[in-house]
Design a protein around this nucleic acid. Structure first.
Ligand SMILES: [Mn+2]
Ligand SMILES: [Mn+2]
Ligand SMILES: [Mn+2]
Ligand SMILES: [Mn+2]
Lengths: 253, 253
DNA sequence: TTAAAAAGTTAGATACATCAAACTTTTTGC
DNA sequence: GCAAAAAGTTTGATGTATCTAACTTTTTAA
């Protein structure tokens, strides 16, 4: 396999666009891409030729456009960066959707993996640590709105002192029970305790930096409850129940 | 005055480099710039010609290189973006210097002002709100190192429950006394309460988005204690004591 | 003072991203 | 089935960033 060549920001955007259009429609057409990226049709043709040369898209003149396996992987990686940044902007910095969307699509091309990883950990930590959470972010919102930071914090603290004790207790209690990922409900979050066996999933997960200690969130079910959809380290995954049964989790909520 | 034209990332880097070299030496020479930016000498010549055309650098063949007033302003703005990002990476995300340096110099060119502003507020909030602070970040560090998030948080909380009450009290107390900025010590931080009068400083500060409510940090003194050096909203400023006496502050620590 | 070294510039090339205008192929609707 | 519309491509242009190699100016130091 060819070494993972550096792609320009533009080419990354083309891949990302193709991924999203493919998910929405059956096939991506040049015009859809042009529209989405606000570029001229002819620019799309050039881009496709280049990406095709690099083995990232399947393309022949006048034909429909699909991503190769490699191209899909790259595109998904870009989408992950995009989503992670946007999440941080929206959930933590309390930036509005539109602005967050625009900004993340610019920054996704230059953020390093290490920082991306930390950002994921940070958002997890803020959301899960009882000392952070919604009340704390409410304090931040007030601070942003020019409110007295003392008041924002104080409020947050008085709200918090009792609350925190309760949260901490609940948190401690929840630690006792381990559950199989398979059994968790949509919206639930928890920490991976163990991944049994050495099969496919194990490889797939560790390739993404997922291991015991990682925070996992159940996003939903699919295919007549045959599969569980999860998010971990910014990746959206779909696992067979069979595989999800091999993962034990300590749930948080 | 010409409308603030969009500069390419490269040109921004050239400006930033010239600013830093000028601060270190008397004058910037093409070779220093080339070395710093790891580009060929001839690339520097082209860049300088372009920046000179735009009125951002003073340049003539074989002559020394300086920033124009306009160029300096732009360069300082870029340095501010750079520093703000780096601060966030180092102080909050706990990224090492080298990586943070590299990353911020890439991202500085694409981050929006709105997000930059929020990032500044966020770092302020984390550092000042008693519910955040060092203990909380220690919890985050442990989480990053793969430690149990429960343990990280729990630790942080038990450390915190008592501590927090004290901090909250101290915080509340500190609220009473207002102090003149002029009188604050290096390292002290506080919230601006009022900026008296309508002179120069008032204009300068409000142009940077500084107003009552903004968090200010005293960085030091200069010119035989004649001036006070502060940091506010990511800007490094030097004020005459005379002017600093017009600003009342509620100190935090 | 002057020749060699260092610094800086110019010329010419490659690569990328984009566009408008002219052209070709495919699709659509009668 | 076929003409018009829509979609896609080619051509040729501009603008940016960079390089190497050849050349010029300035600095240094013998
Ligand atoms: Mn993008
Ligand atoms: Mn994107
Ligand atoms: Mn930079
Ligand atoms: Mn920089």
């Amino acid at each position: 396999m060819a070494a993972k060549e550096r792609l320009s920001s533009s080419m990354e955007d083309y891949l990302e666009a193709i991924l999203h259009i493919s998910a929405e429609k059956q096939a991506a057409r040049a015009k859809d891409i042009a529209k989405r990226l606000k570029v001229n049709n002819s620019s799309v043709t050039s881009a496709l030729r280049l990406l095709s040369e690099k083995g990232l898209v399947n393309y022949a003149p006048y034909d429909i456009i699909t991503l190769t396996a490699q191209g899909k992987k790259r595109a998904e990686e870009i989408a992950r960066r995009h989503e992670t940044l946007k999440d941080f902007f929206v959930k933590i910095l309390l930036i509005d959707e539109t602005e967050a969307e625009k900004a993340s699509c610019k920054m996704e091309h230059v953020i390093s993996n290490k920082i991306l990883d930390r950002l994921i950990s940070f958002v997890e930590f803020v959301e899960i640590c009882p000392r952070g959470g919604k009340e704390w972010l409410r304090g931040f919102r007030r601070h942003c709105e020019g409110d007295d930071i003392s008041a924002s914090c104080e409020d947050s603290i008085s709200l918090c002192l009792e609350d925190l004790r309760k949260k901490a207790q609940a948190f401690k209690n929840s630690q006792q029970e381990a559950v199989l990922l398979k059994e968790m409900d949509a919206g639930q979050r928890g920490k991976i305790l163990q991944i049994k066996g050495h099969g496919e999933i194990n490889k797939r997960l560790s390739a993404m930096g997922v291991s015991s200690g990682s925070i996992v969130e159940v996003e939903g079910r699919a295919l007549q409850e045959e599969r569980i959809e999860i998010k971990v380290r910014g990746y959206h995954l779909s696992l067979r129940n069979e595989d999800a049964a091999k993962i034990s989790v300590e749930p948080y909520n």
